[in-house]
Write a protein that binds this DNA or RNA. Structure first.
Length: 859
RNA sequence: GCCCAAGUGGCGGAAUGGUAGACGCAGGGGAUUCAAAAUCCCCCGGCCGAAAGGCCGUGCCGGUUCGAGUCCGGCCUUGGGCACCA
């Protein structure tokens, strides 16, 4: 008997699919279209298990949809701009372009053995001038529609390397290469007006029924709609132009507990005062040395500097409050100034206690719990849960009892009626800064002219391509140092002018690639007919780490492209369904060097025994650190290529689908991969035997049992695939295989069941399934065979087993006809020994019968 | 610090509010074999018990319910994101 050999069959079937052209997508009205897309990879040079998992899931969906009669689009491309290519050029020499394209070629070769059902004719990389030229055209259209503008913004500046740093390149406040303390520097940069769309981006989340709730929640919180009061404090003897300070608060009901005013170090008032106040200037300078990330800001110790200025409370002329510059106030949010109410905000309370400011409660719990200490009396800040009723002791309105949410509205109404400010809706979402001071990105297609100002390139001059002759031997953006590229005539007046040397954020590239796949060679950004036919993406699959930025930016782009006429009306939301997959993890093997620094080891170099793990070469013991995301730095990586060479693509595919729910992380283990391979070999053997069985029926009972099991398997596997329960679907296929192996059914029934097994496995193990299909005499390719349908009549049994509980604890069970009447079920449950014994002649207090499920007798 | 998740046997995990542990791995026992590999069969949460069976058990504390892994409140731990990593 021939053994299962993946090597012998996988290439053969990949060629058969290519020859049949079954993955080439073209518009057709005779079948419903289905666009399935996995988030495209960054071409690092090696595929990793996370890629295998992502593309296997997408491929499963694509193949399943093909079998269920859909016209499937399943493309692949490369998110090819970005920092690693420049880093490689700096470290190893060479050019980012060569590095990137050679990585793409390598990764394509590593991906092809997986047998993915991809239409490779649509492949492109975002660093192809054909792609980024169309992106430049989009930018010019956005500019025309006022969707993009320039303003000042801060960046991390490395004063030694004289270059802008990404947040990732800042380590503990220092530049990653130079080690110099990072400074903040203000530059004029381009911004997309995404905040103009805040309300729509928030409201439209509700319509995204097939998105994970957690992603929608994260986006909603990110957009951050809040209702609050914006009003001004009058400054006593304030400097010229600063007679008042405008603040925004979401808690106007705590206004009578205000104890200080805080302004951002970047607030115009702070900037003016620092001119004449060396202490403040030093404080502001220190604040500006902090990184630009919100995380760093929030984690930093809260500090303030008393400006000496005082403001009047809007409801009491004699009440004066001090004005502080505080390091935790963001200039980007609200008005860049707040009032602090220490009693009801822990951060404000810490600040007040640190600087000896008063603490005044505005409300207390209506029903204080035991041990409650008011903030005034030294307790922690009192922040009531939303549902809790509170009693106002210093109400804005004069009312006595109110609850949190209504109190805010009432306070706004009251303040408005007294002429103090107005209710406003604010969003946390900021405009999207897209300028990057780097080479390896899409050039921003504008020219700076001394007389005409900022002039967009003429579209006929696109693409503005990156120059080849650049060097990375010194830090900074080589475009800045490239006079023949930089110095160009003004497209408007022809006078000498300078090209913009900033390139675009790589998030721009990934915000519309999914549209480009519908017409990758179009001479305009999109082809409206193709976009109308293929969009939206029916199923998008990718990592949860993209839950906010990439997905939000893409949603913005769909709206902006629609405004510019590049997308039809229906594409306001580009992704109908979203699935976020978990990561692939692996244990980490680590030993210590003579300086007690960690040394990581590749799994291939380690032998794991029950007594512990040792290096294979030297026998040196190594520590096993619990599983974490596979990463090069920790060396806890398994190369998919070596796994495929050892076991075949189908084994790798089967394993990454089988062991964990797809949304959760999966730990790669050798044992798991071997088990997957063993199972596929068993299926191969089993089906080979069945294929040789003589035709004919077995006993009626055996045939019926097997066919019922087959229909249940069709039902469950189909349901599992539809609901992204891939691991459950695979567990079901194990059970079906076991049933098939044990069955005494005849050759006809067994062959029918085996053919169905091949079909149900085909989206997961496409090569093996083709082989089995052929063995069993199936016609054509299993990839294009119609998906089996479960016969409803075969799914239900005549009788069911019901557990019988007494007081919620299972005590016995009864076997009853499936459609038995509730009263009858109750009667038979009460007649069981366990129940009569427990009742001991008494009447049950209550009997709950859930038909087909359970009986609970309450005594 | 803030936002969002997850936590179930030795391990990965299953379970529309209804028999917790399906399916798989590891482990134990057996069959086959001259022997091994491969394969096949049985057992497999903990405690008590010869068994029948009983008690406990889904990160921790409380609550809702006839019934909670599942719902609610509060914690703990781990992971993802925090706007220039992709």
């Amino acid at each position: 008997m021939s053994r299962y050999s993946a090597a012998a069959i996988e290439t053969k079937w990949q060629e058969a699919w290519t020859d049949a052209g079954i993955f080439r997508a073209s518009r057709s009205e005779d079948r419903p279209k289905y666009y399935v897309l996995e988030m495209f990879p960054y071409p690092s040079g090696r595929i990793h298990m996370g890629h295998v998992r992502n593309y296997t899931m997408g491929d499963l969906i694509a193949r399943y949809k093909l079998a269920t009669g859909h016209n499937v689009l399943h493309p692949m491309g490369w998110d090819a701009f970005g920092m690693p290519a420049e880093n490689a050029a700096m470290e190893k020499g060479g050019h980012p372009r060569e590095w990137t394209y050679s990585n793409i070629a390598d990764m394509r070769e590593q991906m092809k053995p997986l047998g993915l059902s991809i239409d490779w004719s649509r492949e492109f990389a975002t660093c192809d001038p054909e792609y980024y030229g169309q992106q430049q055209a989009l930018f010019i259209d956005f500019l025309e529609k006022g969707l993009v503008y320039r303003k000042n913004a801060v960046v991390n500046w490395d004063p030694v390397d004289m270059t802008v740093l990404a947040n990732e390149q800042v380590e503990n406040g220092r530049g990653w290469r130079s080690g110099a303390l990072v400074e903040r520097r203000e530059l004029t940069q381009w911004f997309f007006r995404i905040s103009d769309f805040a309300e729509d981006l928030l409201d439209a989340l509700e319509g995204l029924d097939d998105w994970p709730a957690k992603v929608k929640t994260m986006q909603a919180n990110w957009i951050g709609r809040s209702r609050g009061l914006q009003f001004a404090f009058d400054v006593i003897d304030g400097p010229e132009g600063h007679g008042e300070i405008e603040v925004y608060t979401t808690r106007p009901d705590t206004l009578m507990g205000a104890s200080f005013i805080g302004v951002s170090p970047d607030h115009p008032l702070a900037r003016q005062l620092e001119q004449d106040d060396a202490g403040l200037a030093a404080f502001n300078a220190e604040c500006r040395r902090m990184g630009t990330s919100e995380e760093e800001l929030e984690k930093a110790e809260k500090k303030g500097h008393d400006t000496g200025l005082r403001v009047r409370h809007p409801f009491d002329d004699s009440w004066e409050l001090p004005v502080y510059v505080a390091n935790f106030i963001l200039m980007d949010y609200g008005t860049g100034a707040i009032f602090g109410c220490p009693a009801h905000d822990q951060r404000d309370l810490d600040f007040a206690r640190k600087y000896g400011l008063p603490v005044m409660d505005t409300f207390v719990p209506a029903d204080p719990p035991e041990g409650f200490t008011r903030p005034e009396a030294g307790g922690p800040a009192y922040v009531p849960p939303k549902s809790e009723t509170v009693r106002y002791v210093r109400p804005v309105t004069g009312g006595e009892m109110q609850t949190g949410d209504d109190a805010v509205d009432a306070a706004i109404a009251h303040c408005e009626s007294r002429g103090v400010g107005r209710g406003v809706t604010n969003y946390r979402l900021r405009d999207w800064g897209l300028s990057r001071q780097r080479y390896w990105g899409c050039p921003i297609p504008v020219v700076h002219c001394d007389s005409c100002g900022v002039v967009p390139e003429r579209k006929e001059n696109l693409p503005i391509t990156l120059p080849d002759d650049v060097a990375f031997d010194q830090p900074g953006n080589p475009l800045d140092r490239h006079p023949t590229w930089r110095d160009v005539p003004c497209p408007n007046c022809g006078a000498p002018a300078r090209r913009e040397t900033d390139t675009m954020d790589t998030f721009v590239d990934s915000s519309w690639y999914f549209v480009r796949f519908t017409a990758p060679r179009a001479v305009t950004p999109t082809d409206l007919d193709d976009a109308t036919y293929w969009m939206n993406v029916d199923q998008y699959i990718g990592g949860i780490e993209h839950a906010i930025l990439h997905l939000l930016y893409s949603r913005f782009f769909a709206r902006a492209m629609q405004i510019c006429g590049h997308l039809p009306e229906k594409c306001r939301e580009p992704f109908d369904a979203l699935f976020t997959q978990g990561m692939v993890t692996h244990a980490i093997y680590v030993s210590r060097d003579e300086n007690d620094r960690p040394v990581y080891h590749f799994p291939d170099d380690v032998e794991v025994h029950e007594s512990g793990a040792r290096l294979g070469a030297t026998g040196e013991p190594v520590e096993i650190v619990p599983s974490a995301k596979m990463s090069k730095s920790k060396k806890n990586v398994v190369d998919p290529v070596s796994i495929i060479e050892r076991f075949g693509a189908d084994t790798a595919r089967w394993f990454v689908l089988s062991d964990s729910p797809p949304e959760r992380d999966v730990e790669w283990t050798d044992a798991g991969a071997e088990a997957a391979h063993k199972h596929l070999s068993r299926v191969y053997r089993l089906v080979s035997e069945i294929a040789r069985m003589p035709a004919g029926a077995g006993t009626a009972e055996a045939d019926d049992t097997l066919l019922r099991e087959m229909h249940r398997a069709i039902h469950d596997v189909t349901g599992g695939v539809d609901s992204f329960g891939f691991n459950a679907a695979i567990a079901r296929l194990y059970a079906f295989t076991n049933a098939l192996a044990k069955s005494e059914a005849g050759g006809d029934a067994k062959r029918q069941a085996a053919r169905t097994l091949a079909q149900l496995m085909a989206p997961m193990t496409p090569h093996l399934s083709e082989e089995l299909w052929t063995m069993l005499g199936g016609e054509g390719l299993v990839a294009t065979a119609a998906w089996p349908r479960a016969d409803e009549a075969m799914l239900v049994d005549e009788s069911v087993t019901l557990p019988v509980q007494i007081n919620g604890k299972r005590r016995t069970e009864i076997r009853v006809p499936r459609d038995m009447d509730k009263a009858e079920v109750e009667k038979s449950a009460l007649a069981t020994d366990a129940v009569t014994k427990a009742l001991d002649g008494a009447q049950p207090r209550k009997v709950i019968v859930v038909p087909g499920r359970i009986v609970n007798v309450v005594i």
